[in-house]
Simulated scan of single mutants.
Amino acid sequence: MAVPKRKMSRSNTRHRRSQWKTSAPTLVECSNRSCREPKLPHVVCPTCGQYAGRQVTQPA
């Protein structure tokens, strides 16, 4: 297993860690005309329970 020969400096460590970012999830509008709530793409709408124009689950 590879082991670092020297300790990584604080500057280099912080520079590397500064690149870790989170991004906001992509939201799309529900295709149900009476709902139109934001939801994740390719996922059943949690509000109305529809997916691809058909009822899949009971609305919450």
Results as ranks from 00 to 15, higher is better:
25 P>A: 08
27 L>V: 10
36 R>L: 14
44 V>L: 02
34 S>I: 00
37 E>A: 14
18 S>L: 08
10 R>G: 01
37 E>I: 10
41 P>F: 02
16 R>P: 00
23 S>H: 12
25 P>Q: 06
27 L>H: 07
23 S>L: 10
22 T>V: 13
23 S>C: 09
23 S>I: 10
28 V>P: 05
9 S>M: 07
6 R>P: 02
43 V>P: 01
42 H>W: 06
5 K>P: 00
26 T>Q: 13
24 A>V: 08
57 T>H: 06
59 P>R: 13
2 A>E: 12
38 P>E: 06
4 P>K: 05
4 P>Q: 04
58 Q>N: 14
1 M>W: 02
51 Y>F: 15
7 K>I: 09
42 H>K: 09
35 C>Q: 08
17 R>E: 09
35 C>V: 08
44 V>A: 01
30 C>S: 07
48 C>R: 00
51 Y>A: 07
44 V>P: 00
38 P>V: 03
43 V>Q: 15
45 C>H: 02
49 G>R: 02
1 M>A: 10
49 G>N: 07
27 L>F: 13
44 V>N: 00
11 S>Y: 07
26 T>N: 10
28 V>L: 13
11 S>R: 08
35 C>D: 07
33 R>G: 05
17 R>S: 11
22 T>I: 10
57 T>V: 11
16 R>I: 03
16 R>S: 04
34 S>Q: 12
47 T>P: 04
8 M>R: 10
4 P>R: 04
60 A>L: 07
35 C>R: 02
52 A>D: 14
12 N>Q: 14
13 T>D: 02
35 C>W: 04
6 R>N: 13
6 R>L: 13
47 T>N: 15
30 C>A: 03
11 S>E: 15
27 L>E: 14
19 Q>N: 15
21 K>G: 04
35 C>K: 04
38 P>I: 03
26 T>Y: 09
12 N>L: 11
5 K>F: 08
6 R>D: 11
